[in-house]
Write a protein that binds this DNA or RNA. Sequence first.
DNA 1: TAATGCGATGCTAGCGCTGTCATTCTGCTC
DNA 2: GAGCAGAATGACAGCGCTAGCATCGCATTA
Lengths: 346, 346
Amino acid sequence: MYNPDATRATVDDVAQAAGVSIKTVSRVVNREPNVRAATRERVEAAITSLNYRPNASARNLASARSHIIALIYDDPSAYEAPSSGYVLSLQEGALRACRAANRELLIHPCDYRSRKVSEELQTLFAQTRPDGIVLAAPLSNMPKIVNAVKASGIPCVSLSPGRAKVPANAVVTNDQDICAEMTAYLASLGHQRIAFVQGDAKHKAVSNRFLGYLDGLSASGLARNDHYVVQGDSSIASGERGAEQLLSLPQPPTAIFAANDDMAAGVTRAALRRGVRIPDDLSVAGFDDSPLAQLVFPALTSIRQPSAAMAQRATQLLINPDDIDNGGSNVVPASIVLRESTGPIA
Amino acid sequence: MYNPDATRATVDDVAQAAGVSIKTVSRVVNREPNVRAATRERVEAAITSLNYRPNASARNLASARSHIIALIYDDPSAYEAPSSGYVLSLQEGALRACRAANRELLIHPCDYRSRKVSEELQTLFAQTRPDGIVLAAPLSNMPKIVNAVKASGIPCVSLSPGRAKVPANAVVTNDQDICAEMTAYLASLGHQRIAFVQGDAKHKAVSNRFLGYLDGLSASGLARNDHYVVQGDSSIASGERGAEQLLSLPQPPTAIFAANDDMAAGVTRAALRRGVRIPDDLSVAGFDDSPLAQLVFPALTSIRQPSAAMAQRATQLLINPDDIDNGGSNVVPASIVLRESTGPIA
DNA sequence: TAATGCGATGCTAGCGCTGTCATTCTGCTC
DNA sequence: GAGCAGAATGACAGCGCTAGCATCGCATTA
């Protein structure tokens, strides 16, 4: 049509050039065994010289596999929340694994609030027939979505499905432990009144963070005080509200740990507005290490979720299930990133 | 394999159920003309009852079209810059158009610094054979990339290609005009010393912003003063450096307009660190209306780039070239978003 | 030398759909 | 009511590849 070069080389051309049958070309391309080294080289030379690239559609049609991995995540544009870094990290990790294995990545932001999600997913699966599905949190905790994926029968790996017992087909992070660590770190700075801003209750993975906070308190010998626990909804605004509430307390906390960076940014804003200095008067910690953690002033101490690494691992698992045993664990550790917003008690 | 339901209905099944030939089913599915209403209904009923979904690979193989649109953008993970909102907006817009027209979107973050970009793109095109390519800025100003895309012969629409004369196959925004407007707005607040922090010089679209700034100055009767123009590189750090320099001037500016939000955030940080109050002592404006514009304190006045709308428009153009005349312009207007960081001179 | 076995290679039938062209059916006109 | 244009429908050949089986050839063994 448009491309003068559009009549690309096919297996037949390569076969002819190499003096073999198309089946042998196919064997070489797909790295199948039982091809003599000399033959293989001849075919490879032909492929190079003809600049042959297999046609994905033909391949998909003839074989059962589509060479496509679908990445399904919560549609960020359906949100107020601007935590876009998460989605991009997922994409980055999944793409890395796909490129390494010569697979295509199909992204599918999915609005779980929509009535027609199941149907929409069904259409997606039927049309593109991905070989595997990476289901990212928080969708991985939503029965409606999980069931729709299960019903398709397509192999699926969940990211942070948020169940107590980690299923085999899941990749998780040590969120609870790392939150305990963060809390203990704040305590080690001398803070005795450490508050927590909870995230959206629907996200199981997020509520683990609260459990970690409690673990950290007790590990540091601090008593739980429910006045220091407020409920947010993961938005910046809810962080601001939470901070207002906490800072109005007769004995306000000297450290606030928020279950995500957006809320921590909200806490920061509320504090700055009140003239509370950070970290002199108040330490603030977040979770996600989202881009904005570095952007707000002062830069946020946070917890880096290994989202990219998790997505990559999940994708690898789908492409090569044998990897399950093969070394790499399905628990990818998070890490604490220290910045300006936390410090010793003044 | 995995799916007991994997043996999905095919055209043959539908044809048999509806008592027509497969060709007629194909006509109905593809909305081709010359099908009697009664027949169409019968086929549609069969499709519904069998839950038939056409197999994309088979369709692609048989027709010349792949039903795939490729979105190519600068790989954000190759960057320091955390302005991820842009990429997600592009995806959002392109996806919206694709879903409406029942197309697949293939995303391709592309590291233009890599030596092998051209080859990489060639492989991408050969394997997936997209029907169209949306090439986002800043890649759309890079000859190496543009040429690789051109060489493929695949129809392409560029986003903000940054040429003086807007080519037909491009979607742009009125960036220069809107920057003039922002500058004039600052002047209207009483500011006489308005500074500008320039972005990465490589991005043609970004340098248009500077031209807009100059336009705005002269429209407001203010003289250009090169002491008030500093060069940044689009990063937060460069915004901080720029602000340091500007605020150290014997007659520091009372307003700083930065060519993107990251730099504006940097300006804000530098100002807060020096104890300069915003907007009482200094007005700050950015460009992009990235998520962080709302997150930093005080929230940034900025310019909202219609990235999603532009990507959507570009995708539509590729899917249905006739739209070119059909109403919708290829200039999608940007808009000013007023927030806390600008105000009248104190 | 002939029989045997197995690695290497080729042949052929589809995968599910669309494009082309042939054929059949309508509804009109005169 | 015959003739005809044009709409409606169908038959069939691929698209480029892979899977399954058939076949070939070489080295080993008796």
